[in-house]
Each structure stands twice: as structure tokens, then as C-alpha cells.
């Protein structure tokens, strides 16, 4: 039977840790949660799996593949995102590749000296990590882990040790917590700060920051921009956060994160030492029952 649960009870980080420690091979699928009227054992609204949100594959405790429903993880998109193919090259390849899968395309691109094998592995690895780091910040969603399942024969697998991913993911979760205080959800919009023209003077933006800037408009939600620029939630939030912190853009309709109440600490009681004779008597009794 597959392992099933919800990320609100059992986080992606814990799942990665479980896979790492038990050296598992299999496929983790994360779904959008559809909230039902039923309550679970912790009295929270029960969620059933809806649309597939992401897939992560593992081989003997190592991460080998990841894809997300809201991101194009085809090799063309991944190489385009990594700057190894320009938009025009990507468009032409999409038109011509027909039924050719990622592995076949990779062989042709290497053969034609468009890219090297190293370029492909680095781009795919980065894409896997972007997706996984983003999934590590998810607060909820049903999941299922199927042992010994694979993502398919035509995807490119890149083995990645999980321990550094878990450590880096933990750091990013902390960072994401800070970012979430400023950007509560993906339904916020962006606008340029007052005197934006002067503020942008002499500022050197990164390529990813430039990708966002044209869409800064209160009419566009961050969710819409994320889809257009093909970035993960964490990626786009980090960029918007840095632009906001630099005073270049402002966030419209930001929601405040929920603060959970904490249980008070309880006092401790000293233990009562048992007698060995008593324990042995109970053992004998139980054995005879």
C-alpha cells in the first residue's frame, strides 16, 4: 500500500527525510486538496486529492526527478529557462520535435553541438531543485508515495543527494517565512513605487528581475505573472521581495499570515523508582495469561 497523508500533518521536508533515511525508490505525488465536509482525526477539514500538483521521483534514497503542474518541465523549457536556448530556438524545437521525448531530444542537441551533456544535466538538476525547494514551503495538500514507481522511461533522471537538499530547503523555509510576512499570497498585485523612474536609475537588475518588471501592474496578480514567466512560487516571491526591499515596487492587497497559538509549558514531576521484584512478578503473570 502507498504511504498517504497530508502535508499539513507531514511536511515535504519530513517526507524527504523519510525517503533519505529508508533509502527508498518510488514516486511521491502531491495533489491540490479538495476540502470536504468531513473532519479528520485531528478535527481539521478532511482533504481529498484533487488535481495533481507535482511529482518527485527517488532512486535508492536519492532525488532523481521532479515536475510541477504549473511549470513546464520539458527539456526545451528547462534549457530555455537556463539560458541555453533562446526563445526563438525553443519555439522552433517545439515545432519540430514532434513525438520525440526528452532523452531523444537531448541526444540530438548534444550531437548537433547546441549544448553539452553537462549543460543538460545542470539545467535539469536546477529545475528539479527549484521545484523541490518550492514544494518544501507548501503548507498543505494530500500526498501519496508509491514504492518502486518511476516517472516514465523517457524523462531525464539526475541523481541528487537528499541531505544537502533538506538542509538548503530548511534554510529556504526560514527565508520563505520572512518573505511570507511581506507577500502573504500569490493573489497580491504589484505596482511601481513613487518616483520609480528615479529609483531605477543606476540599479542593476538580474535577468530574473527584469523578467518580472514588465508585468508590474496592479491588474496582474503574482499568480498570473508566475505562470507567464514560468517560475516557481518561491522563486517569484524571492525576486518580488528583493525588489520590494530595494524600494522599487510595492505590494498591493498583501494578506497577513496567521499566527498559531502555543501551548503553555507544564511542570515536571519526579519519577517513582519501581522495584525489580514487582516487575518480574508482572512479567511472569503476563506470560501465564
Amino acid at each position: 500500500m502507498p504511504l498517504q497523508g497530508n502535508l499539513r500533518d507531514f511536511s515535504t521536508t519530513q517526507l524527504l527525510n523519510l525517503v533519505n533515511l529508508s533509502k527508498r525508490t518510488g514516486l511521491l505525488t502531491i495533489f491540490d486538496g479538495i476540502t470536504t465536509n468531513e473532519l479528520d482525526a485531528m478535527k481539521q477539514p478532511k482533504q481529498i486529492p484533487g488535481a495533481e500538483r507535482a511529482r518527485i521521483a527517488f532512486h535508492q534514497g536519492r532525488l532523481v526527478y521532479a515536475s510541477a503542474a504549473n511549470q513546464d518541465s520539458s527539456l526545451v523549457a528547462v534549457l530555455n529557462k537556463a539560458g541555453k536556448l533562446n526563445n526563438e530556438q525553443a519555439r522552433q524545437l517545439r515545432e519540430r520535435m514532434g513525438s520525440l521525448g526528452d532523452k531523444g531530444l537531448a541526444m540530438r542537441l548534444i550531437g548537433a553541438k547546441y549544448v553539452t551533456q553537462g549543460d543538460i544535466l545542470a539545467a535539469v538538476k536546477q529545475n528539479i531543485l527549484d521545484i523541490v525547494f518550492n514544494l518544501m514551503t507548501l503548507q498543505e495538500g494530500p500526498f501519496r508515495f508509491d514504492d518502486n514507481q518511476s516517472p516514465g522511461s523517457d524523462v531525464i533522471l539526475v541523481p541528487i543527494e537528499l541531505e544537502p537538499v533538506i538542509i538548503e530547503g530548511g534554510r529556504r523555509i526560514k527565508e520563505a517565512g520572512e518573505i511570507d510576512k511581506v507577500i502573504g499570497s500569490l493573489d497580491v498585485s504589484l505596482k511601481f513605487a513613487e518616483n520609480a523612474k528615479q529609483k531605477f536609475k543606476g540599479v542593476h537588475l538580474t535577468v530574473d528581475e527584469w523578467k518580472i518588471v514588465p508585468y508590474v501592474d496592479p491588474k496582474n496578480t503574482l499568480r498570473q505573472i508566475m505562470k507567464v514567466v514560468n517560475m516557481s512560487e518561491l522563486q517569484i516571491k524571492r525576486i518580488v521581495y528583493s525588489l520590494n526591499q530595494a524600494g522599487l515596487i510595492e505590494i498591493v492587497n498583501s494578506a497577513k499570515p496567521q499566527v498559531l497559538p502555543q501551548r503553555p509549558n507544564r511542570p515536571t514531576k519526579p519519577p517513582t523508582p519501581p522495584e525489580k521484584r514487582v516487575v518480574l512478578s508482572i512479567i511472569e503473570k503476563l506470560k501465564s495469561m
Binding site: A41, M42, R266, T268, P271
Partner: peptide, 29 residues
């Protein structure tokens, strides 16, 4: 003399609660 922490293996939503209860009891004695 000792204690047993029961966990419903089929309900992952209760695992965190089980861990909290375990730690609470460890703190009592």
C-alpha cells in the same frame, strides 16, 4: 511504572499529536 504511547498507524494526521503527547509524558516523568 512506565507508559505506552498508542499511535493509529493508519492516520498520519495524528502522528504529530502522538509525538507531542510522547514528549509531554516524558517531561512529566
Amino acid at each position: 511504572l512506565g507508559f505506552i504511547v498508542m499511535v493509529d498507524s493508519s492516520k498520519p494526521e495524528t502522528f504529530r499529536e502522538a509525538k507531542t503527547i510522547l514528549e509531554t509524558f516524558r517531561a512529566y516523568a
